[in-house]
Structures are given as C-alpha cells and as structure tokens.
Amino acid sequence: MDGYVNPGNIRVVVVDDQSLVRGGFAMILDAEPDIEVIGQAAEGTAAVRMCADLHPDVVLMDVRMPGMDGIEATRRITAGGNSHVLVLTTFDMDEYLYDSIRAGASGFLLKDAPSDQLAFAVRAVAAGDTFLASAVTRRLIEAFVSGPLPGRQPDLLAALTDRELQVLTEVGHGLSNAEIAARLYVSETTVKTHVVHILAKLGLRDRIRAVVLAYETGLVKRGGQGVPEAP
C-alpha cells in the first residue's frame, strides 16, 4: 500500500495467525477498487489494539489463534466501536461459531471461499447487512440452539405485528429478502422495510441476531416450522 486511502473505500483489518493466510486475503482485497486493507494482526490482543486505533469498517477475524482468541477479540471490538466482524471459519470449527454470533460477529466466511465471495461478504457486512451463507448458518444455529433459552421467552416478540412475525420466521429459516418476498407475495422492498422494523423493535444489531432470536424464543424450531405463511 502507498499510504493513500480513498475516503470511499471500505477499510479492512485482517486477523489470522498464519502469515500466508493473512497475506493472501489482504492481496485479494487490495485488488478490489473499493476495498483497502489498512492493517493485519496475528492474534486477538493486537487486533483489538489495532481496531481501537484505526477504526476499520470490517474486521476479517480468525477464531483459533494463540493468546486472545477470535471470539474474545470479536466481543471487545464490537463492544468498543462500529467495526463489523466477519469470522473466518472451516467446517471443523463449527463448535465455535455460535459463541462468535453471541460475541457480535456479523457473518461467517469459509477460508476456502472464492475471491469474489470474499469481496462480496466484506461489502455486505460493511453496508450493515449480514453474510450468512444461509443454509450453513441455519444448520449451525440449529445445532447449538435446541429450544427456547431461559430469559428469551416468546413474549419478547409481542411488539411485532403478525406480518413481522411471519417475516422474522422466514429470516430464522435462513431465507433472503427476495426469497421471503416470493413466499409471502409481497415486494422485496416491503420485506426489507419489515426487517428494519423488526430489528428496531427488538433492539437487534443485524440480521444474524434476528436468526438467533427466532430460535431462542422458539419461534423457529429445529427441523420444524414457525408462523404459517400467508398471502
């Protein structure tokens, strides 16, 4: 990097204990015209310090690292500012992913994902959306949430309208706005508006928190259906 950062660029910090992995992700992202890698860290403590100094838009975060792991680093980074964390994972690390969601991660990316998916995920997370890889995320959440959790009862959903409950149910099933629109016979813009209202009413930061809440309250059950669809 030559030190010049376009004010419109998405500013990214890459965190991984393997230098080749860090360098590879940084090289791919720096080749994008709207993304700038502003820092790299090999473990969580350094990542937290770096993010406090640089205030990146997105942090690409490995989970398994020496010293402070990626889950604790994610918790501290998301609590301390507006940076969004995109967790790097492999299928053999599934047991860590639910803790990452609770720590504040905004999405997950497989380490062997193609370069165009990497850039897409970074852009999505930077825009305040969630990169879920919906089917994978749904299976992971189902694996860790077996039913309503203490303190997360269905009355939490009382503020939602019937249509918002339907939309939240479909979000919990891992469907995109376009898929929900097709199932509920409404426009994609209408679904997006409902999602915004749901997040605001429930005090949720992003879509992935809505997925977790749908399971924790019992609105969506493992292998079952939630609120019936309506035209």
Rank of each mutant, 00 (worst) to 15 (best):
T190P: 00
S187A: 08
S187M: 02
H197Y: 05
R183F: 03
P154T: 06
L118R: 08
A135K: 12
T161K: 06
T190Q: 09
A135G: 08
A121C: 10
S134R: 13
L160N: 08
V191G: 10
R163K: 04
A158E: 14
Q117F: 02
L168H: 02
V191I: 14
P114I: 06
L140I: 13
E188I: 03
V125W: 07
A143C: 08
D129C: 03
F120A: 15
S146W: 02
E170F: 13
V191F: 00
P148S: 02
D155R: 14
S134W: 03
K192Q: 05
A126I: 13
G151W: 02
V195N: 02
T169W: 04
H173K: 08
L157N: 12
T130N: 07
R138C: 04
L165V: 14
I141F: 01
G172N: 09
H173I: 05
S146A: 13
D155E: 07
L118K: 12
E142P: 04
V122D: 01
T169K: 03
G172Q: 08
R163Q: 10
K192Y: 11
A135D: 14
E142G: 07
R138L: 09
Q166L: 05
S134M: 11
A121G: 05
A200T: 04
T137Q: 07
A182E: 10
A181K: 01
D112P: 06
S187W: 10
H173L: 14
Q153G: 14
S146M: 09
L118V: 15
A119H: 01
A158H: 09
R139T: 15
F120S: 10
L160F: 00
V196H: 14
E170C: 13
D116H: 09
T189H: 11
I141S: 05
T193M: 11
A126C: 12
Q166N: 03
G128Q: 09
A135W: 09
L118T: 08
Q153D: 15
L184A: 05
N177T: 15
V125I: 06
H173E: 08
Y185M: 06
V122Y: 00
L175R: 09
A143Q: 11
T161H: 10
A133S: 14
Q166T: 13
T137W: 02
I141E: 04
I198T: 02
R183S: 07
A178M: 09
K192F: 07
S134Q: 05
Q117T: 11
V167T: 14
S176E: 05
R123Q: 05
R138I: 01
R123W: 00
S115D: 12
S187D: 07
A124M: 13
G147D: 05
V136R: 11
P148T: 10
H173R: 07
